[in-house]
């Protein structure tokens, strides 16, 4: 029985620790680098105006009162009185709540839409054979090159021209004698429908679906499954990481949207949370410390969501070879 050289064991162990330590040091440095903007934001939210606009990292004193003050500003100084008799009224009285509710609603519709359209389209591109499939896919991918700004005005024109379904029904069936055809401006239709399909998600899903072995499909077909059954029962359960990645990115994009909601809405009751943050910025200066407080509050839901879903998110990103 060969005896191991203790000196060699120690040397291997030391080397292993060194490599592991080096990797961890790099990872920790990377984590600090990534966390720095968040730390800056949170610390900035606890500073005075002067401190927040100068180079110092830590506040001299901790100004937690910035948070209630930011809420007051975002709510235009209105009181958010709760009326037990009419609980939903709080969404009209309390604009901040309304902004949050709108953002969550718009995000959820966008996520549901993107998942539905993306999965169906991606499945077709990944597993169905039809003439011109790859060409159509390339054309679709090419649209990713078009800057969003270019499509703003054409999309806005469409919103003005589209009639809302409820106004069409009310007019057609004379449900309301005063009913008239309304367009999509200042409605949830304009805030949600244009974002229920994205090329990126189709691409993401297609790449993921292509990794699913054909043998699974053959086995499903032998069991009498149709494409839809295979998609629902086999592909989707196996594609959780990609679905969750797409859902998170869509929700994040929706959460951060500002220009489009400003374009297609006019009443404060229809606007999302980013509009609330814009209230700290004027043409002559920015209330930086309150803006940071507002931003910190608005990212909390996203952070919670990410922490819950991060396992699938990382898996999804890694599995399709997309790097941020």
């Amino acid at each position: 029985m060969a005896t191991q050289n203790p000196w060699r064991i120690n040397r291997d162990r030391a080397r292993s620790w060194l490599v592991s330590g080096g990797i961890h040091a790099i990872l920790i440095a990377g984590a600090v680098f990534m966390l720095f903007p968040f730390l800056w934001m949170i610390l900035g939210s606890l500073k005075t105006y002067n401190e927040a606009t100068t180079a110092g990292f830590f506040p001299r004193e901790w100004h937690f009162e910035n948070y209630p003050e930011a809420i007051v500003v975002m709510n235009f100084s209105k009181q958010c009185a709760y009326d037990a008799g009419n609980p939903l009224d709080i969404f009209d009285k309390c604009l901040l709540l309304r902004y949050f509710a709108n953002t969550i609603f718009i995000g959820m519709v966008a996520v549901l839409g993107v998942l539905t359209t993306g999965v169906l389209a991606a499945y077709a591109f990944a597993r169905l054979n039809f003439p011109g499939r790859d060409l159509v896919f390339i054309i679709l991918l090419a649209t990713l090159m078009i800057p969003g700004e270019l499509t703003l005005i054409p999309n806005f024109v469409l919103m003005v021209q589209f009639p809302t379904p409820e106004s069409v029904i009310a007019t057609a069936f004379k449900l309301d004698p005063d009913a008239q055809i309304k367009n999509w401006i200042d409605t949830y239709w304009a805030l949600t429908i244009p974002w229920i399909a994205t090329v990126f998600s189709i691409f993401l899903f297609r790449q993921f679906f292509k990794t699913i072995p054909n043998e699974l499909f053959d086995a499903a077909v032998m069991d009498g499954a149709t494409h839809l059954r295979f998609l629902w029962s086999v592909v989707l359960p196996l594609s959780k990481p990609a679905l969750i990645t797409s859902a998170l990115l869509t929700f994040l994009g929706s959460w951060n949207a500002l220009i489009w909601p400003l374009l297609v809405t006019n009443s404060p009751q229809m606007r999302p949370i980013q509009v609330g943050l814009a209230q700290f910025i004027t043409e002559a200066g920015t209330q930086v410390q309150l803006l940071m407080a507002g931003a910190t509050m608005t990212i909390i839901p996203i952070m919670i969501m990410y922490l819950i879903l991060q396992k699938w998110f990382v898996e999804g990103i890694a599995s399709v070879g997309i790097r941020g």
């Binding site: 939903l88 969404f91 009209d92 609603f105 009443s267």
Partner: peptide
Amino acid sequence: ALIALAACAPAPTPA
């Protein structure tokens, strides 16, 4: 949430 938001929607502005 959807019903609540639908109920809270402001009266649509005329086109």
